[in-house]
Amino acid sequence: MSNSKLYKGSLSTIILQLLFKEDKMYGYEITQRVKELTKGELNITEGALYPALHKLEAEGLLEVEMKKVDNRLRKYYKLTQKGTTESVSKLEELERFMQTMNGLIDPKPSLG
């Protein structure tokens, strides 16, 4: 994906978070939403997105719903119960990581 390798490890978290907020989305919609939310800063490539979606589906975190739209079938992804729980814990994990990185990069001067 992306302009930066730093985002790579967070792809599953990003997908789970989007689905947590949006209920159900299809692959192309996810790529576009990320681009829109990050104002083009983060660009999820197709070659990374679908493998990640399929992996999450195999792990039982996502389930699939098909809809007929414009003469073709569209595959929507939704969080399962397990996926909802996982999205919360993944977000906490990411927040802890960001705090740690913040502490490392910009340590507050100690008073001691």
Binding site: T45, E46, G47, Y50, P51, H54, K55
Partner: peptide
């Protein structure tokens, strides 16, 4: 082109593993 040098291969492989 956006799928990268391996084309659809990575997508197919990931799907194979999942299935």
């Amino acid at each position: 082109k956006k799928f990268g040098v391996f084309g659809f291969l990575e997508v197919v492989e990931a799907r194979q593993i999942a299935m």
